[in-house]
């Protein structure tokens, strides 16, 4: 695919439009919106963590509107079964009146899937999403079904209500590109939210792109060059999350039980490219790596008992790791 300057400019403008349109319906949370868009353009999935009522569902709904993509929401509960997610074979009559099994798509067959409170479902159900997230396919009764493209899962989890939940296993977490912390809005944003949602006026959200466009932008983003020192910086950042690594900072050795997987490095580089594009740049910078490292590493670093006991903030760890990696470049 030959990329021209106008394609890049167009892509950049499209992304700006998407941001603008989503921003109309979602008050504040600019970084969350940006990171979600980055996730979508990187072909990844997003884990949103935040208290209820912070507009997580609204964000996904708005995004589907802006992008003119199909959207489904799955409320994860303990009794939710995998078939409820991916779909199942049901007996139907064919044209000749014979009975036959026919696969009925589950809610996962949408461009944008909101897996609400994903940690409330049993691991069995959670793992039903594994194949969908990684391969963008679903296998039921020995038959694989391709999911629509672009496909993105946005899962939410509530960090305060942990009772009766099933924390996502490491393998599941690793499949999310970003883990985004949805913060409580400030006073001004809260005022705007209340004003907007309690009146009869609805946000006039327009379509800014479609699935095709998103896929094209993805291709453009993949072509964004990254200099070797920048790439090394990203890789070192991942390496330093491993406590067994000799060069890792002391803080990592002290508090980290397991470090990030190679998938984290892929996530960082891919999303950094998208970020460069969003910034209107034709190359990845150190800043891009730094920016995406937090959401990309946050859920991939597993703290040991000492870290948990001392209430160590994973973002502090990432900051130290990035600092160390920067010094080594």
């Amino acid at each position: 695919m030959s990329i021209e300057e106008k394609d890049i400019r167009e892509a950049w403008e499209t992304v700006k439009n998407i941001e603008g349109e989503v921003g109309k319906a979602i008050i504040g949370q600019k970084e969350v919106i940006r990171q979600v868009i980055m996730g979508l353009l990187s072909g990844g999935h997003i884990l949103l963590e935040g208290a209820p009522g912070l507009g997580k569902t609204q964000l996904v709904k708005t995004l589907s509107k802006v992008l003119d993509l199909s959207f489904s929401r799955i409320q994860f509960t303990p009794d939710l079964m995998p078939a409820d997610v991916i779909g199942t074979n049901i007996m139907v009559k064919d044209e000749e009146g014979h009975n036959k099994f026919e696969f009925h798509n589950g809610p996962v067959f949408s461009h944008l899937v909101l897996a609400d409170e994903i940690n409330r479902a049993t691991p069995k159900t959670q793992s039903a999403l594994l194949e969908a997230m990684q391969e963008a396919t679903v296998t039921a009764f020995k038959t694989s079904y391709k999911l629509p493209s672009p496909f993105m899962v946005m899962a939410t989890q509530n960090p305060i209500e942990m009772e009766g939940t099933y924390p996502l296993p490491e393998a599941q977490l690793d499949r999310f590109l970003f883990k985004i912390d949805v913060k409580f809005p400030n006073l001004s944003e809260l005022k705007d939210i209340v004003t907007l949602t309690t009146s009869s006026v609805e946000a006039d959200v327009k379509k800014a792109a479609d699935g095709e466009k998103i896929l094209a932008i993805r291709e453009i983003a993949k072509a964004i060059p990254i200099a070797q020192p920048v790439l090394t910086y990203a890789l070192k950042a991942v390496m330093y999350t491993h406590p067994e690594n000799v060069d890792s900072p002391d803080i990592a050795k002290k508090y980290i039980r397991f470090g990030a997987s190679p998938r984290a490095a892929q996530s960082i580089v891919n999303s950094a490219r998208v970020r460069a594009l969003l910034e209107g740049r034709y190359n990845v910078s150190f800043d891009d790596i730094q920016y995406v490292a937090y959401p990309a590493l946050r859920h991939r670093i597993f703290m040991n008992y000492e870290g948990i006991a001392e209430g160590m903030d994973v973002d502090v760890l990432i900051k130290e790791i990035l600092h160390m990696a920067e010094e080594q470049i």
């Binding site: 060059p225 990254i226 200099a227 070797q228 020192p229 920048v230 740049r281 034709y282 190359n283 990845v284 910078s285 150190f286 800043d287």
Partner: peptide, 10 residues
Amino acid sequence: RERTLTALEL
């Protein structure tokens, strides 16, 4: 923002 570094490699 690493423009020169990237250009040098390209």
